[in-house]
């Protein structure tokens, strides 16, 4: 009963949405292999029964391979939820969600785990094991591939690229906030995932370390052709993006390249919105 109601509700909403989103879609590409993520008609709900609340409304979104996309929007708009759905961390029931060419709607939990192994996750908190050294924390990711022989070498290589060559055997307690976040990035990137999902990676960092971390991510993505989807409130780092999408109240509101975004978002009005979040 409630399902049919919400379906009809979402249908009426999708009509108004498709006009909005369709007009702002940047690129179109008929080759499905060119996309890292393809989302069609995605709805998502929290809770069950009477408490069921829709948080994402009819999302259509394509992420081209090699793009750096920043997703922004007020708190509670569903950014993180969308990120966890793309990351195969939640089960999707409505719509279509293709990650790296694989449809993940309807996959079992065990199959979702396999999808996750091709995705690099960077969290707001570094979530490193205090008991492991920087290298060991990164090695935990390499071990997922059942590669034991050169795992330390791989970890050290990755940490060196992030400027931590002299810190590989330090435990997190002996590293600064920026260094810890860089270790976490090394852990996310060491298996060379095609898709990297980052949730507020700079939130716990000062301006300088935040900038460093983002620049490193940008460099690595450009070199290796990786797709990055980053959720952030931090408008100091918007310049790394190829594309900026805004999510408001569970709907895609704008989808723009950097130039347009800066032009259409007057700094003053942007600031006011930041306060409301």
């Amino acid at each position: 009963m409630s399902q049919s109601m919400s379906q009809s509700m979402s249908q009426s909403m999708s009509q108004s949405m498709s006009q909005l989103v369709g007009s702002t879609t940047l690129e179109t590409n008929s080759d499905p292999n060119a996309y890292a993520v393809q989302i069609r008609g995605l709805n998502y709900y929290f809770g069950q029964g009477d408490l069921r609340k829709q948080v994402l409304f009819d999302i259509d979104l394509d992420l081209l391979k090699g793009q750096i996309v920043i997703m922004t929007g007020p708190s509670g708009s569903g950014k993180t939820t969308l990120l966890t759905l793309i990351g195969a961390l939640r089960t999707v029931r409505e719509g279509s969600l293709k990650v790296l060419g694989q449809e993940i709607v309807g996959l079992s939990r065990a199959e979702l785990v396999n999808v996750r192994r091709n995705i690099g996750f960077i969290f707001q908190a570094h979530n490193l094991f205090d008991s492991l050294t920087a290298a060991q924390n990164v090695e935990m990711a390499v071990e997922l591939l059942d590669e034991w022989g050169d795992k330390r070498q791989k970890a050290i290589e990755m940490l060196s690229q992030l400027g931590l060559a002299d810190r590989v055997d330090y435990k997190p307690s002996a590293l600064s906030g920026g260094q810890k976040q860089r270790v976490a990035i090394a852990r996310a990137l060491v298996n060379q995932p095609a898709l990297i999902l980052a949730d507020e990676p700079t939130a716990a960092l000062d301006k300088k370390s935040g900038r460093e971390v983002v620049t490193l991510m940008q460099q690595l993505a450009k070199q290796e052709g990786r797709t990055i989807l980053m959720v952030t409130h931090d408008n100091r780092i918007l310049d790394v993006a190829d594309r900026i999408i805004t999510l408001v109240d569970g709907r895609l509101e704008t989808d723009d390249n950097l130039e347009n975004f800066v032009n259409t978002h007057d700094p003053k009005s942007l600031d006011r919105r930041m306060f409301m979040m």
Binding site: G87, L89, A110, V113, N114, R116, R117, F121, F123, A125, N127, L128, F129, M140, A141, L144, R187
Partner: peptide
Amino acid sequence: HMKQYATLKAMGYR
């Protein structure tokens, strides 16, 4: 270690 274990799960550990 809840956060770390959950992170391992996100990374693809079963």
